[in-house]
Design a protein around this nucleic acid. Structure first.
Length: 166
DNA sequence: GCTAATAGGCGGT
DNA sequence: ACCGCCTATTAGC
């Protein structure tokens, strides 16, 4: 399995953006260690570097959406890929945008997301501004959002930065 | 098929 | 702030 990584400093800690794939991008993860058991592959190293720059600079280049996604998950991913850097939206807003009534289902889909960071699941928060969950931990979510220019006080996002209508 | 488990939301306390 | 009940989707049985 091809693999690449890119160093990324977050809140004084060093993380590795780990890209794992097989010919095409399949998985992109944030880890506290690089994966020692898989050798660096040129292509995946580029993917990881691209991801790092995407986080730091917000430049999105089109990336394949997870190949194993269900139709519902695809709809969720497509909807949230429209959220620009510097803004966030809410689980219920995403649900409404794709014509689904249950906001929990959106969270479900994001959790299953195989390529976080590129699919900006960190930009989806609760309606009341609290952060909600994140696979790599809520503190990581907060730090990534701060890096993107989101103001967070008392654990809540500044309402003026929340897009309620997608 | 049914059941339990969610990265949510809402209304009543 | 807590609690209960609603919701949609998925994984496991």
């Amino acid at each position: 399995m091809a693999c690449g990584w890119s160093k990324y400093s977050l809140g004084g800690k060093v993380f590795y953006i780990v890209a794992i794939g097989d010919g095409r991008l399949e998985e992109l993860l944030l880890r506290e260690e690089s994966s020692p058991d898989c050798a660096g592959d040129d292509n995946m190293m580029k993917v990881a570097e691209l991801a790092r720059r995407w986080i730091l600079e917000g430049n999105v280049s089109a990336v394949d959406i997870g190949p194993n996604a269900t139709p519902f998950q695809r709809k969720v991913y497509e909807a949230i890929s429209k959220i620009p850097k510097g803004s966030v939206s809410t689980y219920s807003s995403v649900a409404k945008a794709i014509g689904c009534k249950g906001s929990r289902a959106v969270g479900q889909a994001l959790k299953k997301n195989s390529i976080p960071l590129f699919i900006p699941c960190h930009r989806v928060v609760r309606k009341d501004g609290s952060l909600g969950g994140f696979e790599c931990g809520p503190d990581i979510k907060e730090q990534i959002l701060r890096k993107e220019g989101i103001r967070i006080t008392n654990g809540k996002v500044d309402p003026s930065q929340i897009i309620y209508d997608l």
